[in-house]
Amino acid sequence: MDCVFCSIVAGDLPADVVLDEGDFLGFLDRRPVFKGHVLLVPRSHVDTLLDLPVELHAGLLGAAQRLAAAAVDGLGAQGSFVAVNNVVSQSVPHLHVHVVPRTKGDGLRGFFWPRTKYASELESAEYAARIVGALSPAVDA
């Protein structure tokens, strides 16, 4: 099976990883709706949300919740848009949760998702680092 997300999970394709946990991996979308747009995937191949084993439900939601908080804390977003497509509009047939940073007046309307690009790999790495920093627990100095 040729699954781009499985290849990212395996380390065969590069990605700006922001969350690396036992069952899940989060990385920046290469064609973000807004910069800082994260895709959260289960490490094991699962086609859709309907196929997700029940024992992964809470972990997936918990990881998405932490990423949504990181969009606010790390990127200065006012909130986030969290979404899952099942088959229709699912560009990669591997379950993925979109966590998109949002700001009032950002221009996102309904289900039309305009896409943007990072200026460089350095810029995407900087956005990833900001999200990672917001996910990491504070360490007392």
Score class of each variant (00 low, 15 high):
16 D>K: 04
23 D>W: 06
36 G>Q: 00
34 F>I: 01
68 A>Q: 15
95 L>S: 05
95 L>R: 00
19 L>M: 06
98 H>V: 13
78 Q>V: 01
97 V>K: 03
76 G>D: 11
40 L>T: 12
39 L>G: 00
81 F>G: 13
17 V>A: 12
45 H>A: 04
18 V>D: 03
52 L>Q: 13
11 G>N: 13
101 P>W: 09
25 L>Q: 01
11 G>E: 06
71 A>D: 11
47 D>A: 08
91 S>A: 13
40 L>I: 07
43 R>W: 10
102 R>I: 05
20 D>V: 05
14 P>Q: 07
103 T>Y: 01
101 P>I: 08
67 L>Q: 09
80 S>R: 00
14 P>E: 14
64 A>I: 02
47 D>E: 14
14 P>V: 09
50 L>M: 04
91 S>N: 05
73 D>K: 08
51 D>T: 07
63 A>C: 13
49 L>K: 02
73 D>N: 10
13 L>P: 04
51 D>Q: 04
79 G>S: 15
19 L>F: 13
102 R>D: 14
103 T>L: 08
91 S>P: 00
26 G>S: 08
42 P>K: 13
91 S>E: 11
87 V>C: 11
55 E>Q: 07
44 S>N: 04
70 A>N: 07
56 L>H: 15
41 V>M: 08
24 F>E: 05
60 L>C: 14
50 L>T: 05
72 V>S: 13
64 A>K: 03
86 N>R: 07
87 V>G: 03
19 L>A: 12
67 L>N: 13
65 Q>H: 11
9 V>F: 15
91 S>V: 11
68 A>S: 15
8 I>M: 06
70 A>D: 10
33 V>G: 08
103 T>D: 15
89 S>H: 07
30 R>A: 13
45 H>F: 06
82 V>H: 07
34 F>R: 15
80 S>T: 04
13 L>H: 03
66 R>V: 05
71 A>I: 05
100 V>Q: 06
103 T>S: 14
52 L>A: 14
39 L>E: 01
72 V>P: 08
103 T>Q: 13
36 G>H: 00
49 L>P: 01
8 I>E: 07
28 L>Y: 10
10 A>Q: 14
94 H>Q: 02
65 Q>N: 08
78 Q>D: 15
87 V>P: 00
58 A>Q: 07
27 F>T: 10
98 H>L: 11
60 L>W: 08
97 V>G: 04
59 G>S: 09
50 L>Q: 09
86 N>D: 12
54 V>I: 15
9 V>Y: 15
33 V>H: 06
85 N>S: 07
66 R>A: 12
22 G>M: 00
76 G>N: 10
12 D>M: 01
41 V>S: 12
76 G>L: 09
